[in-house]
Nucleic acid binder design. Structure first.
Length: 508
RNA sequence: GGCGCUGUCGUCUAGCGGUUAGGACAUCGCCCUUUCACGGCGAAGAUCGCGGGUUCGAAUCCCGCCAGCGUCACCA
């Protein structure tokens, strides 16, 4: 039992009005793009409406759940800047927030359903079920449970239980008894259940087509479909925002809300994110974890922006670069598209480039440092390179990269004593005019104590005027000698960054 | 196979009964530039999945079809 403070009591009173949403991942895999987007839309909805965001871990599949996945999921959410108001790491009024710690609750509710005849024990083995499914499929029928354990007498159930058989529990679906307008269940010949979805509209399913389904796995472990309903209801979730792949089990969940005497939340099923082959995004489409995007050099702000625009559009539809706050202010379920979207890395990269161009240099440097260390260009405790110098370096490359991880390759020559020469660079240096150009630069630069941007620029202008060389004939060999390459960022700034001594050394 | 969702430039999308169907990424060209980028300008790219209707008028409304995807587990 939790003793509530006054403040919490006030909060509880407001619950009927206050929006409460939840992101409920199963820690059976990394946080991938699809689930990250679901989390994002939940978060946006909460923040846009002044509501609460709840994080709940659905670890009812003991076999596949792993702590490492849970950590990855939390890390991914944090990286994206998504926070939550209640969750396994911080607690809250509906603790615990990990389903594996709520077994007592599920068992109590299931026992109640069994007593009321709404659910029953099922002793069918997985092998039996699989065989029956095969047979139905072979006969060209829709595979579903044949409800055989419904018929078991009380005594038979007792006997098997005493024999040590471990049953599962099924919900008893009886369409003719399910009619209930409050839950969208219509008393017509099909026994329709109409799901009122905020995105899909009214979607109708036939109840006479679903068989009795498992709500408790053997070993008294709750099934997802049951635990989700119980928790959403008890945690006061007002809006269930989840992937479209959950739409078809919503009618089953509605049956459970009704059986348990819970009111219905609002549903919003968001379209899936597809890979370039137009199938549901999965591991085989590349990046497995959101964290991998961080490692590849994406900015969380850019990723957030891109993901927001995947399936949602702002009211001012020409805008693409939308900072977090703008998205929050403008977010509405109404502007979520109902068709699935293909994840486009090209556009993500472009957007990342946009964010790199406008981000504060200090921030970029902070992000770039690990890559510079990793590439072995500088040690983590290196004091040889001053912060000012590093900031200049960031300014030098920010317009030419779309991924932070590209920085080391772009500027490696600034860290070595002599640059590695590409074949093209060698070729240019072998040309006759090149020696003239380099000699001119050498004598010009040698006259200064320190090479500064303006000085270098005017020196180079002077050389062009004095020697009659084309700009190209001057810059190309100079670039080749200093960087070992024929392409790259603005040369004058590179010279300033290299400093007088290293420039003169390389010109020889 | 049953059920369900979806279908506007290659991709993300705007549009919701009257627009030359708009924007962005990618592509191509030009300009800027020592170069590669950035940036600027421009081009190309959509018979609005297909076929019928309704209407003076349809991407927008109705019907049928097709295709793609999802889902049919003691996974979530």
């Amino acid at each position: 039992m939790i003793v509530k403070t006054d403040k919490q009591v006030i909060n509880m009173r407001h619950n009927s009005q206050r929006a409460r949403v939840r992101f409920a991942p199963a820690p059976t895999g990394y946080l991938h793009v699809g689930s990250a987007r679901t989390a994002l839309f939940n978060w946006l909805f909460a923040r846009a409406n002044g509501g609460d965001m709840i994080l709940r871990i659905e670890d009812t599949d003991v076999e596949r759940s792993a702590a490492a996945y849970e950590e990855d999921i939390l890390a991914g959410l944090r990286w994206l800047g998504l926070d939550w108001d209640e969750g396994p790491d911080m607690g809250g009024p509906h603790v615990p927030y990990r389903q594996s710690e709520r077994d007592d609750l599920y068992i109590r509710l299931v026992m109640d359903l069994i007593e009321r005849g709404e659910a029953y024990y099922c002793f069918c083995s997985e092998e039996e079920l699989a065989a029956r499914r095969e047979a139905m499929l072979a006969a060209g029928k829709t595979p579903r449970y044949d409800n055989s354990c419904r018929a078991l007498s009380r005594e038979e159930v007792e006997r098997r239980l005493n024999d040590g058989c471990i049953p599962a529990v099924r919900y008893r679906v009886e369409p003719s008894k399910e009619r209930d307008a409050e839950y969208g269940i219509r008393n017509n010949e099909y026994h329709e259940c109409v799901v009122k979805d905020l995105i899909k509209g009214e979607v109708s399913f036939r109840l006479d087509e679903i068989g009795d389904f498992i709500i408790m796995k053997s070993g008294l472990k709750p099934a997802f479909i049951f635990a989700g309903v119980v928790d959403d209801a008890l945690m006061g979730i007002t809006h269930v925002i989840r992937g479209e792949d959950h739409l078809s089990n919503t009618p089953r969940q509605i049956l459970l809300y009704r059986a348990l005497g819970f009111g219905l939340p609002q549903f919003a099923h968001i379209p899936l994110i597809l890979g370039s082959d137009r199938s549901k995004l999965s591991k085989r489409h590349g990046a497995t974890s959101i964290i991998q995007f961080r490692e590849e050099g994406y900015l969380p702000e850019a990723f957030f922006n891109y993901l927001s625009l995947l399936g949602w559009s702002p009211s001012e539809t020409d805008l693409e670069i939308l900072p977090r706050q703008k998205v929050v202010e403008d977010f509405s379920l109404k502007r979520i598209s109902s068709s699935p979207a293909v994840f486009d890395t090209d556009k993500l990269k472009w957007m990342n480039g946009q964010y790199i161009k406008q981000a504060p240099a200090h921030y970029l440097l902070e992000l770039a440092l690990p890559y510079l260390h990793q590439a072995g260009l500088m040690a983590a405790d290196d004091s040889q390179f001053t912060e000012d110098w590093l900031l200049d370096l960031v300014e030098l490359v920010r317009t030419s990269i779309d991924l932070i991880s590209r920085i080391p390759d772009e500027v490696s020559f600034l860290f070595t004593s002599m640059p590695e020469m590409t074949a093209e660079a060698e070729e240019i240096l072998a040309m006759e005019a090149s020696r003239t150009a380099l000699n001119a630069c050498m004598s010009a630069f040698a006259r200064h104590e320190e090479l500064q941007y303006d000085i270098i620029k005017s020196d180079l202008d002077d050389i062009v005027a004095a020697t009659g060389l084309k700009k190209r004939q001057l810059f190309q060999p100079l670039r080749a000698a200093l960087t070992g390459r024929v392409h790259g960022p603005e040369l004058v700034r590179i010279i300033a960054l290299l400093g007088r001594d290293r420039v003169l050394q390389r010109l020889k």
